[in-house]
Write a protein that binds this DNA or RNA. Structure first.
Length: 428
DNA sequence: TCTGGGGTCCTAGGACCC
DNA sequence: TCTGGGGTCCTAGGACCC
């Protein structure tokens, strides 16, 4: 018989990732409700299953939950991205040892490509992946395997929901696909958000299966090409490939301030730091940017104070990844959009139009010595790499840090070097 | 008083050109 | 006052994801 190689896609998802990370080094939290708050301790961004059972919704502002948290002894943490990033890396490294190709989709999710696995029992193999990952990292995970990415997403939800699957669910026949899709709410499908789900329900489409029974042209008409892709994927035709690109097309660093800022000086300091962080991320992926954007705004939710929001787009004369240059443009931009008399809540820097480091178009009239600056940036990055973040920085980044965010419930950085821990202690 | 941060892709409409 | 048709590029905004 002719063997055709049909790849299968896997989606591995870390269960309640941030909450699980907090538990890895603090097992006394096992079985207890845990929530993790967003930057500035604003709202809930992760919940353990116990916290979900208590009815704590995702995205709920923390202040609304005070009572619930106290009466139920919920463990509350500020988000600790250093810790989560490190555990994420451990998970991804393990996955790479099992399959030839993975796509890191987010901090807690990866797609796996099972190409050339025709003779392998994917249930057993998947179970091994789940078991090894959980054992070696302490993070519980779920794995869905199916002929398309969208179906793998569906499968992973079943793997997580039903205990007897033991973390793995494989959709490899049409019968299983039909059964799964009939039990799957349309709004939970990857690619169908709040707006489309409302629209589809209006037309009587309540499950993923209902959706697949509509005509292709109807879907195209109501939801465009993205909807059509989802439709095809749910019917078993793969049209979303593994994403092999490693470089980002835009890089953004933005924060809400710990307290409202009114003066230009502290906002400039914040923006300089955001710009520096963008430039650093840019160099890490060996790219150059051609556009810098800066934005500032007051609290958009405030009802009883004047609101203001503005942004500016600044084309760079020559694509660059030089921190000093990106800071310079960002600060000039800020100066033009900043207006006196407002209480600012948030600012950010976005860089776009990103190109590979070389080859790039040299500007004949360029006066700065680019090689020299590149060398300086290289030295700065390696110093910061070995001695901890922000050891070396540009003067404009300042030391006041009035804009620093709140994170009062930060867990210790269990996985990082001693120097980093001392740094964090010193900053408190 | 308190409501995150960082991404991607697609489309409609305007400006401009011939 | 009338005023076509087609192409391209850019931008803002909307939808989605985690």
């Amino acid at each position: 018989m002719l063997q055709i190689s049909i790849p299968m896609y896997g989606l591995l998802d870390c269960n309640n990732f941030y909450a699980s990370c907090e538990r890895v080094f603090n097992p006394s939290l096992n079985g207890k409700p845990v929530v993790v708050l967003s930057n500035n301790d604003g709202c809930v961004i992760a919940r353990s299953s116990e916290a979900k059972t208590l009815g704590i919704p995702m995205g709920e502002p923390a202040y609304k939950l005070k009572e619930l948290i106290e009466t139920n002894k919920v463990a509350v943490f500020s988000s600790n991205y250093v810790l989560y990033g490190d555990l994420s890396h451990r998970v991804m490294t393990i996955l790479q040892s099992f399959v030839p190709e993975i796509e890191i989709y987010s901090i807690d999710e990866a797609f796996l490509l099972f190409d050339g696995f025709e003779k392998i029992n994917l249930h057993e193999f998947g179970a091994k992946i789940v078991q090894t990952t959980t054992q070696n990292t302490g993070i519980p995970v779920s794995l869905g395997i199916a002929p398309t990415k969208t179906l793998a997403k569906v499968a992973s939800k079943f793997a997580k929901k039903y205990k007897n699957y033991k973390g793995v669910c494989v959709i490899d026949t049409d019968e299983k696909r039909e059964k799964a899709l009939k039990l799957f709410d349309i709004g939970d499908v990857w690619g169908i958000g709040r707006q489309y789900s409302k629209k589809l329900q209006y037309y009587g489409v309540n499950t993923a299966w209902d959706f697949t029974q509509r005509s292709k042209s109807w879907v195209r008409h109501t939801m465009g090409v993205t909807g059509e892709r989802t439709w095809l994927e749910l019917r078993g035709t793969p049209c979303i490939e593994m994403d092999r690109s490693v470089t980002k097309k835009s890089i953004c660093t933005s924060r809400s301030f710990g307290e409202r800022l009114t003066e230009l000086a502290p906002i400039s300091e914040a923006v300089a730091n955001f710009a520096a962080s963008c430039a650093e991320k840019l160099r890490k992926q060996h790219s150059l940017a051609s556009i810098v954007m800066v934005f500032i705004h007051t609290n958009p939710f405030a009802t009883n104070e004047p609101k203001y929001a503005n942004q500016i787009v600044l084309p760079l004369p020559v694509p660059t990844s030089d921190t000093t240059e990106i800071i310079r443009f960002a600060l000039a931009g800020l100066k033009t959009i900043y207006k006196d008399g407002f209480r600012y809540k948030k600012a950010g820097v976005i860089i776009t139009e990103i190109l590979p480091e070389r080859p790039f178009q040299q500007d004949l009239f360029e006066v700065r010595n680019r090689d020299k600056f590149n060398k300086i940036m290289g030295v700065m990055d390696s110093l910061n790499e070995s001695y901890g973040k922000q050891k070396v920085k540009i003067a404009a980044q300042g030391f006041d840090r009035k804009w620093k965010l709140k994170n009062e419930k930060l867990s210790p950085c269990y996985t990082t070097k001693l120097s980093d821990i001392l740094e964090i202690k010193a900053a408190e």
